[in-house]
């Protein structure tokens, strides 16, 4: 479509254009003493003697405050209301059980399988890591590399961020820390070419895992999204079934824009999983619940700090408990 066409249509709107540790770290701020999950749930609901409208209103606020989003929060709380009625839950113990179970059910849908990183059993696994600026892509790659190296796998890292100052050096430091080889290009060079070199190198070395770092990019930048698509195409061309995993890194501190990020990155790179970082902070990243509902992208890993071991599998039960720990904090 021509330039003026676009402007004119935008002006007139005559035609819409088609466009397309686990436990304790989750609830920092609470007592550090180890308590069983159900103990903590008791504590949580003890603050409400009756499960009435106030209770659900507070629950809604907690969900909104956790960035779940207004609509999703309302839907969830409606579902919980219904479920409590349906199961005829009366005692506190029953109500809390019903709520947690229902939340997990909503999240898991029909799929109770643990969403694991897809590993290619027949050879090289290629993982592409994407996301907006500063969310924790490079750090997550360092942490993942450590895991695979510890499992005895050979890991190669591709320094596909040739744009940001110090990005290549940052990945090199991580490579040194965990003992993974890093394939680099010159600063400012074509990132797709770096990916190409890295794939060749990983194949030649018969490495087990290749993780590709990419520059942070905002999802509304068409050119940068095209660049990303090109990087993915290089992988597809060189590796049958590759990339085996496209991980979108989301910062738990991000609000409703994360939904837009997920939509756009899914469209461009067919995201297969989410890494939710910075959960060691006070933000909860509740938008992943809405993303799961609307786009069906599962959270696979969570980042819980800046150190190499601060990476965990995602556990919906623990995560949902973490969301509601606010009920305790607020009423204390």
């Amino acid at each position: 479509m021509g330039f003026f066409d676009k402007i004119k249509r935008a002006f007139t709107g005559e035609e819409k254009i088609e466009t397309t540790e686990v436990t304790e770290k989750y609830e920092k701020g609470l007592e550090k003493t180890r308590k069983s999950f159900s103990d903590r749930m008791n504590e949580l609901f003890a603050n409400f003697r009756t499960v009435d409208e106030d209770f659900f209103e507070e629950l809604e606020e907690i969900l909104i405050g956790a960035d779940v989003g207004y609509e999703a929060s309302m839907e969830i709380s409606d579902a919980l209301r219904q479920e409590v009625k349906l199961k005829n839950a009366k005692s506190q113990g029953e109500v809390q059980q019903v709520i947690i179970e229902k939340m997990v059910e909503i999240y898991e849908k029909d799929n109770t399988e643990k969403p694991e990183i897809n590993i290619n059993k027949e050879g090289l696994t290629v993982i592409l890591v994407v996301g907006v600026n500063g969310v924790g892509k490079t750090t997550t790659i360092g942490k993942m590399a450590k895991r695979y190296q510890t499992e005895g796998k050979t890991v190669v890292l591709a320094a596909g961020d040739t744009f940001r100052a110090g990005a290549i050096e940052q990945l090199i430091v991580w490579g040194e820390r965990v003992g993974a080889q890093v394939v680099t290009g010159k600063a400012g060079s074509d990132p797709a070419a770096v990916v190409f070199d890295a794939v060749r190198q990983a194949k030649k070395q018969q490495a087990d895992v290749l993780i590709v770092d990419t520059a942070g990019r905002l999802q509304n930048k068409v050119n940068l999204m095209n660049e990303l698509e090109k990087m993915k195409r290089v992988i597809e061309k060189e590796i049958v079934d590759g990339p085996h995993e496209v991980l979108l890194v989301l910062d738990a501190t991000t609000g409703q824009n994360a939904m837009v990020q997920a939509k756009q990155f899914k469209q461009t790179t067919n995201v297969t999983g989410i890494v939710l970082t910075k959960l060691d902070g006070t933000a909860k990243g509740g938008i992943v619940l809405a993303i799961r509902k609307e786009l069906d992208i599962p959270v696979k890993l969570v980042g819980l700090g800046e150190a190499v071991d601060d990476l965990q599998e995602f556990d919906p039960g623990e995560y949902i408990y973490g969301l509601f720990s606010g009920l305790i904090k607020d009423s204390m």
């Binding site: 909104i64 405050g65 960035d67 910062d251 501190t253 991000t254 609000g255 994360a258």
Partner: peptide
């Protein structure tokens, strides 16, 4: 502050 920050922006 990142302009995309959600509810926690106030606390932070």
């Amino acid at each position: 502050v990142d302009a995309m920050t959600g509810q926690e922006a106030a606390n932070v």
